[in-house]
């Protein structure tokens, strides 16, 4: 692969403090990303834990991507699309709604507190609402602290028998 290129320093951890929560937001290009832009244009101060990933449509967000984010160290994941009925692709967010609602219900069984995941609808004109969504979501995840979803050491001893055999 083309990986033979320069620089292997990319793998260094960038974040300073270990107790800082990290949030990932998947925003549809047409409504929510534009709404977040509007919040910025309006200089609406927001907590800084969120990192936005732009996607064309909330329907592009594979629930697996959300879980991947948790595995890779996200302490909360936010998905935001156009309001139902306003999807740029007409119906993408309707598919998204079913998938994401199911994911939300499954998260506790995967071992993730449901508060760590939120999906919502923010239009291009709702800059104020976007700022609120970010503030509320950050405030909801903060008390839960770091997730350590995958790769961390198990809290209990590995020997305990949980299986059926």
């Amino acid at each position: 692969m083309a990986d033979a290129g320069k620089g292997h320093a990319c793998g260094v951890r960038r974040r300073g403090r270990d107790d800082e929560i990290k949030l990932v937001g998947f925003l549809c290009n047409w409504c929510s990303y534009a709404g977040a832009d509007m919040a910025g244009t309006s200089r609406l101060a927001q907590p800084a834990a969120l990192r936005i990933v732009r996607v064309p449509c909330s329907g592009r967000v594979d629930p697996l991507l959300v879980m991947k984010a948790f595995q890779e160290g996200a302490d909360g994941v936010l998905v935001s699309g156009c309001h139902p009925g306003d999807c740029h692709y007409n119906e993408g967010n309707y598919y998204a709604r079913r998938r994401l609602e199911l994911l939300k219900r499954m998260l506790p069984y995967y071992g993730v507190e449901p508060e760590r995941f939120h999906y919502t609808w923010v239009s291009a004109s709702e800059g104020g609402r976007w700022a609120e969504v970010v503030a509320e979501f950050t405030a909801a995840v903060e008390p839960l602290g770091k997730l350590h979803y995958a790769g961390g050491a198990p809290a209990a001893a590995a020997g305990e028998e949980d299986g059926d055999g």
Partner: peptide
């Protein structure tokens, strides 16, 4: 019984459960 126990666990307990499994 395991299924019932699983349902009663907290998310963080399930996290450990799955890690062991």
């Amino acid at each position: 019984e395991l299924a019932e126990r699983f349902r009663e666990m907290t998310p963080s307990q399930r996290r450990d459960f799955w890690r062991r499994q």
